[in-house]
Design a protein around this nucleic acid. Structure first.
Lengths: 344, 344
DNA sequence: TTGAAAGCGCTAACAC
DNA sequence: GTGTTAGCGCTTTCAA
């Protein structure tokens, strides 16, 4: 691999000092039109590429954001990643990414790796920061890291996070429940997810609260814990519901995958959506469009989420003032998986 | 943000020279057991994190691989990314990622960005490198880049690439066609994809060739060009097929999304899978498991693909000898979307 | 085995 | 407006 050209090469060739070349590049000081022209030309001619490592070393921080996601494959996170990357680019940043798949040790290791890379900011979405009760050791670790590199997250890190951007899970649950209630449903179940994940618990709690407030029947068996967030979980959860003596008429699924799984269980029983069950999911990934009937789903504006996440990350890195607590609101996207109860 | 501790801090505290600390860290030279112990302790106590920027500057290259994908959201690439990241980590590398979404200028810009980051290697999958005839300017650009940073790709870059890892598209097409043929199908269509994308063209060509070799009827209308790779494309393509006076009995879809779209068109017509149409797709993403009936699909071992991509990237970076041309073979995963023709 | 010193490529004082 | 210089944190000769 050939030696890379440096500002010294350019400077020598142009008969100026490296500083002048640097000044032109950064735009931090005036450079005479004549030299400017000569330098610009040389840069093109030599195809000069500034060394981000040197710049980063000099400024004790790189224009790179470290992103720790729980999973790249899940379309919710995949889309978020895509938006974040676009957003980062727009602001002149690159993304170093990592997926933990729920592995706690990995999460710790990655925190360190990104710290070593001297990323400008660490953005964490999902994973342990999203757990209801992240363990002490972990929070301590993040706190230590956060002393040298700011952390932006959607979860809660005991105050270690420099900035938090949450999704309004309660509002999301509200949209789902109220939509079904307005359609005349009274027997509404909630399936999927895990009891230790904050986002899930927040939804379930709000769901239960709303049922009560609306005088709708609440039953323990109508909240089916996971075992997880995939279609298999949804399938199994729905089968439990189907086995119940008193079945609900509507089902809220913790995400599109569990909804898809639930749909399969319903069809297997020879029943239909929305004829026999109305189905609402969260996340509104492309999966909700891929199912038939297409799923009515609570949607988060992932572009906005990404924009706030990355925007805050960049602002913090530049020492700008930011909103410490931000919330992204959901909205309901009505498709074909629900119908008026009793009505038609 | 607090000042980070350096080897100088450690050295001073331990009463040794920075060089000794460095030697211990890199393991490039012997260090007395006594100092080693003292240093190790200090490193823990101060939570010292080596500055990857400085190291990279010194060694004129970082332990980061730049990955340019066409799209993060498509589960094929999302899964590939996930596997690549895992593979990179295993080898002590991080991933800087980027998705181009088919934007040519972006691809150029990213190539430069990664070059500036002094990534060890650039890995490109999808995008322009996957086009049948990438334009001259682009190839030139890659060639120039490739002089300073090695490029690994699945596409063809006029020899600029340092290493190529292809999927065996022809074998994939063969698996699909022969499976359907063996089931007794004679009228087989191919839908989706774009005529300028190498992987698609390779599949179509092989498909056409195999029909002929097997004495099966070939019809122009049975190859439906895209318009793309999403379910809408599949839906539209299938509708064209359905409108034909002579419909095929089996359909090969360029990926899972187009297959899902095709399935919807078929159902809309009141027809069934596999009763009225047998359906085979490529890629075998989780989408093929999410559909009902589950899709029979040609599967690539994405872990192997990732392992070869990243393995080669790392090997090249270390100046090791590598296989210049590697191929990942597909296999057929039989599920429920096909049936014996005539037979049952 | 260890230390001193140079240098990777860049930017920002500080002079002029 | 421009050049000189020091230093970001690390590794690696070169001597001792």
């Amino acid at each position: 691999m050939g030696k890379m050209v440096t500002i010294y090469d350019i400077a020598r060739e142009a008969g100026v000092s490296p500083a002048t070349v640097s000044r032109m590049l950064t735009g931090n000081a005036k450079v005479s039109e004549e030299k400017r022209k000569r330098i610009t030309e040389l840069i093109r001619a030599y195809d000069y590429k500034p060394n981000a490592l040197a710049k980063g070393l000099r400024e004790t921080k790189s224009r790179v954001i470290g992103m720790i996601l729980v999973d790249f494959v899940n379309p919710f996170y995949a889309t978020l990643l895509s938006s974040c990357e676009k957003e980062a680019r727009k602001r002149g940043y690159s993304l170093i990414v990592t997926s933990t798949l729920g592995d706690r040790e990995l999460e710790d290791a990655y925190l360190d790796t990104m710290c070593q890379q001297r990323v400008a900011t660490i953005v964490m979405v999902g994973g342990r920061s999203d757990e209801l009760a992240p363990d002490e050791g972990y929070v301590g670790h993040v706190k230590r890291i956060a002393e040298s590199v700011p952390v932006v997250t959607n979860g809660y890190l005991g105050g270690a996070e420099g900035c938090r951007v949450r999704l309004d899970e309660e509002k999301a649950a509200e949209l789902a429940v109220e939509y079904l209630r307005d359609l005349g449903h009274r027997e509404i179940a909630f399936i999927g997810g895990k009891g230790e994940i904050r986002s899930t618990v927040e939804k379930r709690l709000k769901y239960a609260q709303l049922l009560m407030q609306n005088g709708l029947p609440t039953r323990k068996e109508w909240i089916v814990d996971g075992p997880g967030y995939d279609d298999k979980s949804g399938y199994e959860a729905m089968r439990k519901l189907l086995a119940l003596p008193c079945r609900p008429t509507a089902v809220i699924a913790v995400n599109d995958f569990t909804a898809a799984g639930a749909a399969h269980a319903i069809w297997e029983e020879g029943l239909g959506i929305p004829e026999d069950f109305s189905l609402v999911s969260f996340d509104d990934t492309y999966v909700s469009n891929l199912c038939r009937p297409r799923l009515t789903s609570v949607s988060y504006d992932l572009e906005e989420f990404a924009s706030r996440l990355i925007g805050s990350a960049v602002d913090i890195a530049h020492g700008r003032k930011i909103e410490q607590n931000q919330v992204v609101e959901p909205k309901l996207v009505v498709r074909d998986s629900c119908k008026q109860y009793g009505g038609g």
